[in-house]
Structure formats: C-alpha cells, structure tokens
C-alpha cells in the first residue's frame, strides 16, 4: 500500500471505531434503569447525543476516506516490533505489581522498554531500573505518603 492508501485505511479504522463506540454507548444507555428521581433532562439524553455525534463523525471519516482525495499528510514510517515490546513491558509490570511489588515490576518495565529502544546492556538497564524504582518507592511512600504496592511476597517475607 502506498502512503495515501494507508492514511485512508487509518481513517476507515478510526471511523469504524467511532461507529462501534456509538453502538456501545447507545446500547448501554437504553439498558439504563430509568431514574426514580424526576429530572427535566434525564441521564440518557447526553449519551444519546454523543452517540449521534459519533455516528456523524464516523460517517464524515468514511466519506473522506472513500472519496479518496489524496491527503496532504504523509504516512509515517514505523516499526511495530518495538511498540509491542513496550506494551508487553507494561503488561509485565501490571501482572507483577500486586504480587512482587512496585520495585520488581517497574525494574522489569524499565529494562523491557530499554530493550525495545535498542539497548542491549541488559544488566546495566536492570540496575538503573532497580535504582530508579527503589528510589521512587521510598521517596513517594515514605516522604509523600503514597502507597505504591510492596508486593505480598515482601509482605509475608518481612512480616511473617
């Protein structure tokens, strides 16, 4: 596909997403239990307005894409592999957060992202990630009163 065709496909995808969102919003809104409290304009009015706007907007994008007018925008060259690695790093962090805690999860996130950006000094990346996440853990939990998760492994190990 050439650049213009890719942009058209992109617009079709975005248009489709808007259509699907419109259906979702409308469906959820119709299944709302009517409020007991009386109001001039109920809670369903704005969602339906938004659903209508989504449909119109999706249609406009389809029209633009199918009319096929060459867009002045250039499709940007990109690799998908590093994107997927970054996304995987975030999933790893999410999965580990409550079990192994903030420090372990974020250290691995840092190292995975560094790998995605082409760094191959993994030990160094892990070390820096560890220092950064440990420092943020103590700074934010001890000094600023946040509660980043310690992880139940640490919990049971330290307190039990």
């Amino acid at each position: 596909m050439n650049s213009a065709a890719k942009i058209q496909t992109g617009k079709l995808v975005l248009g489709t997403i808007l259509f699907l969102l419109a259906i979702l919003v409308a469906k959820e809104t119709f299944s709302l239990t009517p409020p007991t409290q009386q109001a001039t304009v109920g809670p369903a009015f704005f969602p339906l307005l938004v659903a209508f706007g989504l449909v119109m907007n999706g249609a406009a994008l389809f029209w633009q894409a199918l009319r096929g007018k060459a867009s002045e925008d250039q499709w940007i060259r990109h690799d998908m592999a590093p994107v997927l690695i970054v996304l995987a790093g975030l999933v790893i962090q999410m999965a580990l957060l409550s079990m192994a805690g903030w420090i372990v999860g974020t250290t691995l996130l840092f190292a995975t992202v560094a790998w995605a950006f082409g760094s191959r000094r993994t030990m160094l990346d892990l070390t820096i990630g560890f220092v950064l996440s440990a420092a943020s853990f103590y700074l934010f939990n001890e000094m600023l009163g946040l509660s980043l998760p310690q992880g139940w492994i640490v919990d049971t190990f330290m307190n039990g």
């Binding site: 190292a111 950006f117 946040l146």
Partner: peptide
C-alpha cells in the same frame, strides 16, 4: 533514549497507579 523512555514509563505508571491505587487504572 532507552533510559529516557524507560524512566518516562516508570513515572507515567506511578502517576496513574497512585491516583486510586488500583490496577484498573493501569
């Protein structure tokens, strides 16, 4: 860049998590 974006993502997730302390936000 590898460290810059590693750091940005670490702080981005920190900010998102600490809003309500739940994974749903992540």
């Amino acid at each position: 860049k590898p460290w810059l974006y590693g750091g940005i993502l670490a702080f981005a997730t920190l900010g998102a998590y600490s809003l309500n302390n739940n994974i749903v936000d992540l």
